[in-house]
Structures are given as C-alpha cells and as structure tokens.
Write a protein that binds this DNA or RNA. Structure first.
Length: 417
RNA sequence: GGAGGGGUGGCCGAGUGGCUAAAGGCAGCAGACUGUAAAUCUGCCCGCGUCAGCGUACGUAGGUUCGAAUCCUACCCCCUCCA
C-alpha cells in the first residue's frame, strides 16, 4: 500500500502494525528527517499489562529503535475516576496508593522493552495526573470545552455505538475523549510530542486530540492506530485458561508465557512473528512457509523470541528447555510449577486430588476429582483414574520428585523437604 | 418528580409455587483423533464429601407457605418513556 521513506513507518507497514494514519505522507516526511516524539496511553488499573497491550508496546519499541522518542503515558488521573464503561455496578475506585503500585508494576514491564533515560531518544514515562488533577472546571470549559462540538461527539463510533445499542453512557465517560484530547495537547506543549498511537478503538479520541491541538495551539499533530488483533479463529487475543496472559513474571511465569506462544494456531504464526518478534522479514517468510507438523519449528522460534523480549534471554532459554524436556522427552523440566511438602506429610499419604488442587492443576478438590475420573490425571506419566487414590513416598521418582499432569499439556512437580 | 420494565451460575439467556443446582448457547476442562495447531465427536463444568449425602446459590434484607429463583414488604442498582 504505502511507500514509506522513514524507517519507522516502513517497519509499521511491513510488519503489519498500521491500521489507520491521519496523514501518512506528512508523518512520513516528518519521521524521515526529524526525531519524532510519540506517545501511547495506558490505564493503571492493574499492576501489569497483558498481551492485549503488546502491539502497543512493540510499536513504542520500534519507534525507539528507529531513532525516535517514546512517551509512555500512564492514565493515573483518569484511573482515579474509574472507567465507567459497561454495566458493571461493582467498579471499585482505586486508591492513590494502588494506582502508584500499579504504575510501578507497569514500569517494570516497559523496562524490558524500552530504554528509559534523559537522552534525546530515551523513553520517558509520565502520568496524566500531573495535569489532570489540577484542572479547574470553568477554565477547562472555556479553554477546551468550547472547541468540542457535541453534535460531532455524538457521531463518534465510541458514542454512537453505545447509543444505538441503547447502552448506558455516563457523562463522565462522555468526557473521556475530552480529557484524552487534552492529554495530547499537554504532551505536545511539554515534550514536543507530535504523534499519538493506539489501538483502532482509539481512533476517535486521537482525532479529537489532533483537532484540539490545531485549534488551541496551532499545532500539527498526527495519529496512528494498530489493527485490532484476534486469533484466526476469531477469539480476542490474550485470554487463556487461567485468565489474561500477563507480561510480568510474578503474574505469569516465563514458562507459561512461552507455552502461550508455543500453542499459537497455525494460520497466525507468520503474523505473530512479524508483530511480536524482531526477526528479519525474510526469515519470517521462510518460517511461515513451513507446512504440516514442520510449522511447529516456527512456533518454537516464535515462543522463544517473544519470551526473550519480555523476560530476557536466560528465562527464554530455561522455558524452551523445560518445554523440550517435558514434551519431547517426557522428562521433567525444572521450570514447571512446583509444590513443596514435607516428607512426613507425604509419608502419611496425601490424596491425589488434594495435590492436584494444591499444585494449581485444578482449582478445587471437586474439579480435581472430576479430572481423575475422566482419565485426565497422571502421576509420573501413568494415568490414575481412581478418585480416591492417595500418594506416598513410593511415588517419588529417582530424582526425588512426583510429576503430576492434568491433560497432556499442564504439568507440575511435587518435591519433599 | 411521574409511569413502566428489569436485576438468574465466568458471559449471554430460559424459567412465574414443588419434577430446579436451575433449559439452551458461548467460554472453559478432560477423553478420542492429531503436530503441545485447527476442525470434529464424546464426557464434564457451584463447593465439600470414597457414589445416590450435605452445604450454599437466582440484587440485598425480611415475610407468607409443608415447600419460593418464582408470591408479599422494604431497600439498593440499572433501563425506557414522560415532566
């Protein structure tokens, strides 16, 4: 489609990050000759981000790699109010301390992907609470509010779709786009930020920011969005059995993160390699041509590279090695989730279902029992289908552990002290 | 402020006094088939319990009944229309 002159936009196009851009040629010309400062906003509702945000993280990374300056904007101000979307009555308001902690956790994720500092192309993280907290209503209405047309706002997708579906839309939420537009202008003033990026659902908000910048500060700003990413079977990406696929190791171990990518559906492999690894495009083209069982090689590379970016080389090696030993040799991998119990407890015999529950392979004893009855539970790779079975010291392997499995893919170890 | 409609299991959504731990769908788990993929078929899917047992559950709190998700009262929340 587009021929980009700038490294940054060329990467965006070639690797599939670009969905829409407000002025492709203009931005391209700017990025080809100047260092561009760009930002993406993130909520501070959890202490980590999940793969749903990974595209956004990757474009900030590419931005930096191609010589530009990324700003990570934390929505500390907006989070304080609480996102009013949906019909969910129990949205608890986050306290200031929680938000602080969340921002700190998210910062650790970004530290893996970006280089922060004071240099011209070092990334910075800023919190919109810095300016939103101090806004005064009347001045805001006079200076900013008068540039927004309600008629226009009502036609924006985010609002229109809600109204058409007769779903509630609070005034607070209606104002989100005003605040977000204001953020962009504030970042432009403070840091010379010229570009806002985001998911395709942010298009309307981004455009509002650009218009506001032109009206109140005579700024020429740009916007760029990424496509909404789903798996080829249509599922929203980033959900798994246990919940969201988190990017920090306290929430999801590097091994599980590796497994998430390892289990990518065939048709997604090429696309994911382009988006979530930094392998050269010709190498990716080669990998995605693999067919049948051979595509598993490509999935291993995807899993390894994606894990490396997020958790570092050592963790990725360990995860890959554990996966290899567990799946290809049927042996034990050191990285598997491990439960430690005392030798005395084991000697007194422990029900299998209890161990399954305690290792996290089942969420309750009932679920563990069902698992056993359905033939999905294995002890040291032998199926055990008696729901009343107990384990004792005889189950310890020569390595001094018990390997428990739930189905073919989920494994855990029990060790004694 | 007035009138009407509604709050059911992770989500959607049936259910108007016992047969309801609650139809159906989605999501999820396991088995079969495979390539740690997809699709398909089968079983499971509140908790505790070595079965058929018990405990909780249909917005919240009470009440009526031998018996309530279903009836009554109060409260909370949501939606629509009117003012």
């Amino acid at each position: 489609m587009h021929q980009a002159r700038s490294d940054f936009l060329r990467v965006m196009v070639e690797r599939g990050f670009l969905h829409q851009c407000t002025d492709f040629e203009g931005l391209d010309a700017l990025a080809a000759t100047n260092r561009v400062t760009a930002y993406i906003g993130f909520d501070a509702t959890a202490d980590s981000l999940h793969v749903g945000s990974l595209m956004q993280i990757m474009i900030l990374r590419w931005l930096q790699k191609t010589g530009h300056k990324p700003i990570v904007l934390m929505g500390g101000g907006t989070t304080k109010i609480g996102d009013p979307s949906g019909r969910d009555e129990a949205r608890q308001l986050l306290t200031e301390e929680t938000i602080e902690r969340n921002i700190a956790g998210i910062r650790r994720v970004f530290d893996r992907f970006l280089r922060f500092g004071d240099g011209p192309d070092d990334a910075i993280m800023v919190n919109n609470a810095e300016w939103l907290d101090e806004l005064r209503y009347i001045p805001l209405l006079r200076d900013v509010g008068r540039h927004f047309s309600v008629n226009r706002m009502l036609t924006m997708d985010s609002v229109r779709l809600r109204l058409e579906r007769e779903q509630p839309l609070s005034f607070l939420e209606f104002n989100y786009m005003v605040l977000q537009a204001y953020d962009f202008v504030e970042l432009a003033r403070r840091y010379g930020c010229r570009l806002q990026m985001g998911g395709s659902d942010q298009w309307g908000n981004i455009v509002m920011g650009i218009e506001l910048g032109r009206r109140i500060a005579d700024l020429e700003l740009f916007g760029l969005t990424t496509p909404l990413i789903t798996t080829s079977s249509g599922a929203k990406m980033g959900k798994t059995a246990q919940g969201a696929v988190w990017l920090n190791p306290e929430r999801l171990s590097p091994y599980d993160y590796y497994q998430f990518w390892r289990n990518t559906e065939d048709p997604d492999v090429g696309r994911f390699l382009r988006l979530f690894t930094e392998l050269p495009l010709d190498e990716i083209a080669r990998l995605e041509r693999l067919e049948g069982a051979e595509i598993n090689e490509a999935k291993k590379i995807l899993a390894f590279e994606a894990t490396r970016l997020c958790h570092g080389d050592a963790a990725a090696q360990a995860a890959a090695e554990t996966a290899r030993r567990t799946f290809e040799e049927g042996a034990l991998g050191a990285d598997l989730p491990t439960l430690v119990i005392t030798r005395a407890e084991l000697a007194a015999r422990v029900p299998l279902y209890a161990l399954l529950q305690r290792t996290g392979l089942a969420t309750s004893n009932s679920e563990a029992r069902r698992l056993i009855q359905q033939g999905g539970a294995r002890v040291n790779d032998t199926v055990v289908s008696d729901a009343t079975a107990t384990l004792g010291e005889e189950s310890l392997t020569s390595e001094g552990v018990i390997k428990l499995s739930a189905g073919k893919k989920r494994h855990a170890l029990v060790r004694v002290t």
